[in-house]
C-alpha cells in the first residue's frame, strides 16, 4: 500500500509579496513555508499510510525552492520525498505539470491513493489534482472533509465531501486522487527527532528523462505579473454620540453608497 502527496513551498502567509522593477514576484528574504493547505494533505497521508501499514511519499515539482517543503513534510513523518525538475516545471502550466506528475506516479507503480491540499496559496488554481486524475484515468474526489472508509485491499474508498450546497457521501474505486479540506484532521507539528532526520535526508531529483515522459508544450503562458492598483480608502469613523444615533448614521451612509 502506497500513498502519495504533492506539495510545494510558498511564501509565508504573512509575507509582503510584490512585483519588483524587473517584473518578478518577490517576497524579500522572508522564509517560505509548506503550502498551508497541504498540511492537511500531509497529515492525512501519514495517517492513512500508518493505519494501512504502507508507504508514504511526498513529491514536489519544480526548483530547489521546494526542498524546504519536502524537508518539512519528512520532518512531519512522510517516509520518502522526491523532487522532479524538468523544463517547464515552474511555468505554472498545469498540463505540463500533470504530465510530469502522472509520469512520477506511473514510475512509482504501486500507488493506491494520491492526496492533494485544496489549493496552493500562491497560484491558487485548484486545478492540478483534476488534471492528474484525468491523465491517470483514476477516480477523482475533491473537497474531501472526511475519509469514512478506506479498504486498500479491496480497492474501495468512501468519503464525505464538503460542497457549496451541502455535504455529500461518495464511494469510489481505488486508485484515486483526492483533495482534502481544512478540518479533515489536525496537522501535527514536526518534532525534534523528525526535524533532525529530515535535515540529514538527501532528496532524489528525477528529470523528465528519468520519468520517461516528454513534457508537452505549455498550453498557457504567463505574460507578466503586476502589482494591484492601490486601494484608495479614507476611513470615516462614525460617532454620533450614542450608539443608536451612530447606527442610524451608518445606515444612512450605506444607503448613500448604494450597497443596500
Amino acid at each position: 500500500m502506497h500513498i502519495v502527496t504533492f506539495t510545494r513551498s510558498t511564501p509565508d502567509t504573512a509575507a509582503k509579496v510584490w512585483v519588483d522593477s524587473d517584473g518578478k514576484v518577490t517576497w524579500g528574504d522572508v522564509a517560505t513555508v509548506v503550502n498551508p493547505w497541504d498540511e492537511y494533505a500531509l497529515e492525512e497521508t501519514i495517517a492513512q499510510a500508518t493505519n494501512g501499514g504502507g508507504e508514504s511519499t511526498v513529491i514536489a515539482i519544480g526548483s530547489a525552492l521546494h526542498n524546504d517543503a519536502l524537508k518539512h513534510s519528512m520532518a512531519m513523518g512522510l517516509k520518502h520525498a522526491l523532487r522532479i525538475d524538468a523544463a517547464g516545471a515552474d511555468t505554472h502550466d498545469s498540463l505540463v505539470w500533470s504530465a510530469l506528475a502522472a509520469g512520477a506516479i506511473s514510475k512509482l507503480g504501486d500507488v493506491d491513493l494520491v492526496i492533494f491540499g485544496k489549493e496552493s496559496i500562491d497560484v491558487a488554481t485548484d486545478q492540478h489534482s483534476y488534471q492528474l486524475a484525468r491523465r491517470l484515468g483514476w477516480t477523482m474526489l475533491s473537497y474531501v472533509s472526511a475519509i469514512l472508509e478506506a479498504d486498500y485491499a479491496a480497492g474501495a474508498i468512501k468519503v464525505e465531501r464538503m460542497l457549496e450546497q451541502g455535504k455529500q457521501v461518495v464511494s469510489g474505486q481505488l486508485p484515486a486522487v483526492i483533495s482534502v479540506m481544512k478540518g479533515i484532521n489536525e496537522p501535527r507539528y514536526p518534532n525534534f527527532l523528525g526535524i533532525r532526520k529530515a535535515a540529514k535526508a538527501s532528496i532524489p531529483v528525477w528529470t523528465a528523462a528519468d520519468l520517461g515522459v516528454e513534457a508537452p508544450e505549455a498550453a498557457t503562458s504567463v505574460l507578466g505579473y503586476m502589482n494591484p492598483p492601490a486601494r484608495d480608502v479614507s476611513t470615516e469613523i462614525l460617532d454620533a454620540g450614542d450608539v443608536s444615533a451612530t447606527a442610524r448614521t451608518l445606515a444612512e451612509r450605506l444607503f448613500k453608497e448604494k450597497v443596500l
Binding site: 498557457t220 505574460l223 505579473y225 502589482n227
Partner: peptide, 11 residues
C-alpha cells in the same frame, strides 16, 4: 495570485 497581493496575466 499570492492571495491578491499580486495580479498575473495568462494567455
Amino acid at each position: 495570485a499570492y492571495a491578491g497581493k499580486v495580479l498575473m496575466e495568462m494567455r
